[in-house]
Write a protein that binds this DNA or RNA. Structure first.
Length: 686
DNA sequence: GCAAGGTC
């Protein structure tokens, strides 16, 4: 019997799986992908079990195809050596090196047994460098790379999978080498620098404290640390505004001064007085317009994490683990994706029909089908992902979800529905007012919803309604009140975990699968702590950044990732060999570690003092940090400079004495911590 | 024990 899929689409340089004789073992990256592959290869496959692990068997005459799966990486790098620098490492099964990896034992054992009886091997993991490494290491340690092939597909649709298995290539050694190299580089930098800083603390203070540094975590820490320092050194500056209240049709409206020319308090009061004397303003323009707001694209993981944070206050890692659970329950598609596009082959009509069976959504889906008249074309975003589409509901009916699982599931369903809905029409009006004879403009705005559009399905962005009466150009409006408002410039806000994740995305470090975990790791190390207003950096976190900036500046910068990427590309192109790259990295590290070791004592002292386990003899008069200059640490020294510098602004704007200035800024909420500490220390009074 | 990467 000839398989119905076996005869079409072969080409030169390619091998069809159907031409391989004997037993062929196909290795997928994850269980769900294995099932899809089995479905694509045959309409009749047997479901089998080994070591509690499911795999699939296809029999077709003399052919036997086994489709089994990995669960991500089954091997990891490790070393037997202690201390640093360390440059020798081996690949070993993950369950050996990492605790809590027992499940990976079962999968590896199953693959090992299947490998021993197979004649050919196909690496059918995701088509990226990690997938190339995952499949390669399994075949290398349990099978035979000389009898192995690579299947290349970028989506799990049946037609693409069938095509991929008719066009197998040799193992993709360029990708494998690039992937192995990425692992080794991250390991070399991460393990060596982590050990270096841990060991200095240990030899200085005899305390074993876990510290770490890495290509992704350290630049992220540096980013938050910059915000922390700016906030702690911040001194607000007063800015003034004049706020007239007018009356129109019996309604009081307060106006906003735009393009304020006011610099000093005196100016502000003079302008207020001038308006009071005038008693009215003239309408300079009145404009009404509508804008059309398109639905947001379907969710990728970052967008989902952002919305769950904004609407429910969930941390990115919480949202991610909820989404993973929903995926394992088959309620949603694969969540670790960057794509904002739905799969083109998806039957939207039948999926919506399935969703309409879920009582919460019956009415919404019925409205959507009416509104679209069955024309179902979703909006999509620009972001793409080579391996997965955007997150969408599968139509499987949820049972027994917790309230938090429901919340995330609901966001995903509604965002999916909204993608098919029409634009929302928002109505806005703006009135501008002038003071006769002056180049000064005040403004009032109104806003309303003319057509709900997609907000009906995804109401979490719905704009608020603000009524503004109609004005005529040239109309004189009576001013009933004028006040002078003093506001203060604001420091950068404390960042949130989702803000950190968004930043990591924007500079392209980490991946969908790892960003949330790496953020949590910074908290675990006590480099960061949560406050009610967002993430704060601890003294230890600041100290780690300072130290690494001096001794391992590469590791603090986002550019190290760009550099690695370039090296990976060169390896893929065959311009450079993995061994060369590793030798170079080793030489760089060797040199940096030598310089670091010369200052081991100092670094150990600095980090120990930041850990609060040591008080330096020349310490800052205010805190426990080492002295930098004039009896102060760098931070309090800078705060003192800042106090003197910003006083010039205050003197001009408020006309206050230095003493008054200090009293005023001490009371302001956004004045930085280090500034307050300096004021209390030098200028007295708690 | 230390990284970042996959997935359960």
């Amino acid at each position: 019997m000839n398989n119905i899929y076996s005869t079409i689409g072969r080409g030169p340089g390619f091998t069809s799986i159907w031409d391989l004789k004997g037993k062929v073992l196909v290795i997928a990256e994850k269980p769900k992908a294995a099932r899809k592959i089995a479905e694509a290869l045959s309409q009749r496959y047997f479901v089998r079990n080994i070591n509690d692990v499911t795999y699939f068997e296809i029999r077709d005459g003399p052919r036997q195809i086994i489709v089994a799966s990995s669960v991500g990486h089954l091997y990891g790098l490790t070393t037997q050596e202690e201390g640093y620098p360390v440059y020798t490492y081996q690949w070993v099964p993950l369950y050996v090196v990492e605790k809590k990896k027992a499940h990976s034992y079962n999968y590896l054992e199953a693959l090992r047994k299947l490998c021993t009886t197979s004649n050919y091997f196909v690496n059918a993991c995701d088509y990226d460098i990690e997938g190339s490494v995952i499949g390669y290491l399994i075949i290398k340690f349990n099978g035979d790379p000389g009898r192995a092939y690579r299947a290349k597909f970028s989506s799990l649709t049946l037609s693409e999978l069938r095509e991929a298995f008719r066009r197998l290539t040799q193992l993709d050694y360029e990708m494998i080498e690039a992937g192995l190299c990425r692992h080794e580089l991250d390991w070399l930098w991460g393990i060596n620098v982590s050990r270096a800083i841990m060991r200095t603390v240990e030899s200085f203070s005899k305390k074993k404290i876990i510290l770490s540094a890495g290509r992704v975590q350290t630049p992220t820490l540096k980013y938050v640390s910059d915000i922390e320092k700016e906030r702690n050194l911040f001194i607000p500056i007063p800015v003034y505004s004049v706020v007239p209240t007018i009356v129109k049709d019996g309604v009081k409206i307060t106006l906003e001064l735009i393009n304020s020319p006011i610099r000093t308090k005196k100016d502000a009061y003079a302008l207020a007085e001038r308006i009071r004397r005038e008693g009215f303003l003239t309408v300079e323009s009145y404009v009404e317009h509508t804008t059309s707001v398109a639905p947001p694209p379907p969710f990728n993981l970052g967008d989902l994490q952002e919305e769950a944070a904004r609407i429910y206050g969930y941390s990115p890692s919480k949202t991610q683990s909820i989404a993973e659970q929903l995926y394992l329950d088959a309620l949603i598609s694969y969540p670790r994706t960057n794509s904002q596009k739905l799969p083109s082959g998806l039957d939207f009509k039948s999926l919506l029909t399935k969703i309409s069976q879920i009582s919460n959504y019956s009415a919404l889906v019925s409205d959507l089908l009416k509104e679209t008249k069955g024309y179902l074309k979703p909006v999509e975003g620009d972001k793409e992902d080579p391996a997965h589409p955007a997150i969408y509901p599968t139509g499987v009916r949820p049972v027994k979800l917790s309230s938090e699982q429901w919340a995330v599931y609901d966001l995903i369903v509604r965002r999916f529905l909204a993608a098919f809905a029409g634009n929302a029409i928002i109505y806005r009006s703006t009135a501008k007012f002038a003071l006769p004879g002056e180049n000064i403009v005040f403004q009032a705005t109104g806003q309303g919803i003319e057509d709900l559009g997609w907000y009906k399905y995804y109401p979490f962005h719905k704009p608020s309604v603000k009524v503004l009466p109609r004005f005529r150009n040239g109309e004189r409006v009576e001013v009933v009140e004028v006040s002078v408002k003093t506001a203060y410039t604001r420091p950068p806000q404390r960042i949130s975990k989702i803000g950190m994740l968004r930043w990591m995305e924007s500079v392209e470090i980490g991946t969908e699968a790892t960003r949330a975990t790496i953020i949590e790791k910074l908290f675990e190390r006590k480099y960061l702590v949560n406050t009610s207003r967002g993430v704060a950096v601890t003294d230890l976190g600041l100290g780690i950044v300072e130290t690494l900036e001096i001794f391992f500046p590469e590791l603090v910068k986002v550019e190290l990732t760009r550099h690695f990427e370039k090296l990976m590309n060169d390896i893929k192109k065959g311009v450079v060999k993995r061994e060369q790259v590793i030798t170079e990295a080793r030489n760089t590290l060797d040199m940096l570690i030598k310089k670091f070791n010369e200052k081991k004592e100092t670094v150990g002292q600095i980090l120990s003092s930041r850990l609060g386990i040591y008080t330096p003899p020349n310490k800052c008069a205010i805190c426990n940090r080492e002295e930098f200059s004039n009896g102060l640490c760098t931070y309090h020294y800078k705060a003192n400079e800042q106090i003197n510098k910003v006083y010039e602004e205050w003197k001009e704007r408020e006309g206050v004495s230095f003493k008054e200035y200090l009293e005023r800024i001490k009371k302001l909420k956004s004045t930085g911590k280090w500034v307050i500490e300096v004021i209390e220390h030098f200028y007295g009074g708690k």
